[in-house]
Design a protein around this nucleic acid. Sequence first.
RNA 1: GGUUCCAUAGCUCAACUGGAUAGAGCAACUGCCUUCUAAGCAGUAGGUUCCAGGUUCGAGUCCUGGUGGAAUCACCA
Length: 596
Amino acid sequence: MSTIDSALKTEIVKAFQQLFDFELSVDSFSLQPTRKEFEGTHTLVVFPYLKQTRKSPEESGKMIGEYLKESSDLVADYNVVKGFLNLSVAESAWIGVLNEIAQNENFGDFPARGQKVMVEFSSPNTNKPLHLGHLRNNFLGDAVSRILEANGFEVMKVNLVNDRGIHICKSMLAYQLFGAGETPESSGVKGDHLIGKYYVRFDQEYKREIEGLVHQGMEAEEAKKQAPLMLQAQEMLKKWEDGDEEVVALWKKMNGWVFDGFDASYQTMGIDFDKIYYESDTYLLGKDIIEEGLGSEVFFKKEDGSVWVDLTKEKLDEKLVLRGDGTSVYITQDMGTCDLKHQDFPFEKSVYVVGNEQDYHFKVLFSIMKKLGRDYADGLYHLSYGMVDLPSGKMKSREGTVVDADDLMQEMFDTAEKQTRELGKIEGLTEDEAQELYRTLGLGALKYFLLKVDPKKRMLFNPQESIEFQGNTGPFIQYTHARISAILRRAKGLDVSTKFDPAKITSLLPKELELIHKLTEYTKTVDLAAEEYSPALIAQYVYELAKTYNGFYQDVPIFNEDNKEAVKFRVALSQSVARLIRKSMLLLGIHVPERM
RNA sequence: GGUUCCAUAGCUCAACUGGAUAGAGCAACUGCCUUCUAAGCAGUAGGUUCCAGGUUCGAGUCCUGGUGGAAUCACCA
């Protein structure tokens, strides 16, 4: 909340005391932004308080407005439309606020709150390269981490890599059978893409075998189980679990290729982690928790020896937590990993950035941890995000209808280069600077596109037209920053200081006021974005900020102005906007250029 | 079939958690570069917020019932 917001609310509370002898609690109400067609910036809706005021809506509004205007320097004027009390804040207050923002490099930074939060995201399988869906996951996880950090949390970013299991064996088997010793070096193919090729190859050959068996008269379901390739893959998984030297060596070699490929992708994306967990290390965890849960009667054993948890009271059914043969299922190791994570980093909150197809799984997991009495269980949070659809429908990696992450990023860079050249904006840039600019713009466009949508919602990606450089886009905001940078360079050249004297600024233009108002909303936006785990709120805010600035830029001359104090004031205003654009964009993991 | 989520302009998305005449971008059309970067600005047009009820001063938002779509309900991960 901005200082003006809270100061206004304090005054309103006083008004209710004085006028109606009513104790209004500061947290019980909020001020709405005044609609453009009315005078003012803040609006109090008086309908809810008519019982206390015992007056008509209009009269109540007038009484409160009049009181505020008389008793507070903050409120310059008011008007009442129906039950809406619109307040105009004094220009001197806005000017004072801008002065604070402009002089304080750290405006909007939150103090450390001494709380730890772990954010798990990315979590790829090592059998195929990253695709568009992973990009949404990675950008979300990265941005949420930055937002939480900005809110004063100590953040630990972790990646839980799924590097074992039957699907990995499928790639390994296909490689063994058809790979002919191919390597990333020999083929010139990036490691993760090379492995992905064999994962697809497995599926093709496997389907062929099934067809053959069905042709011979076998039931389809049975054929899926009996296909030699599937049996071989299962055999390989057993060998892996038994530590068979040859299989483990192959696994290590192929995983190494994938990790090299992932590292390159992460670097291009500008994403990193504080800690990486591997499922090959954690997949046996959780069995001791089974014992513990049986002891405390949270779990129960069926006749065949399998272990279950009864979550019917939570409307989640009965759920298996250990197989009859004593081997783990997915949730077994997730329980164990949950404890491990808390042991490694005693968090207050732990966020799982995982698609909404796993909503049920996380409800179950969190319920179990609560039943087991984990004191951190209330801090577990599933950041459930929607899938990214293509115009053709859902992406399916096995059917090759995926948008590859590396390809897409490269396309973005190419498009950025093409646009930049067409606009003739590379003059004065060295080749290196130009290349860096293309990456900044291309990645900015992509990240912004994926982050501006509410994470919870499913979204559509149309490769033909989705990524624009005009309108509500990353480059639009980056452009605004570059524009302001040019202003600031010029100010420096002209030796114009950004230290203005608030007392000498006697009036504000509407565009100036609107812009300062936007600046003050930064803090509450960052706060809300953390609370909601929603980078989309930041994206929307920074878009509005940039748009508002462009309106100001169009209408108000900065250097072509006789009043020297006004020049300083406008430069300071521009500088503050640039700074908050940069900060906001950085919360999304997007860099902004000095020129473009 | 059970459970959960979704449905807003031609398209992609907003709507500050129940507030005023539902807003942006893209696409279409019209203006604005001899002045700080036109990747910009200003304007026109575009809506039965899926349908039907209900709750109240007030509903895109909450409740009920439909319709349409998605996910999930594995001794898969």
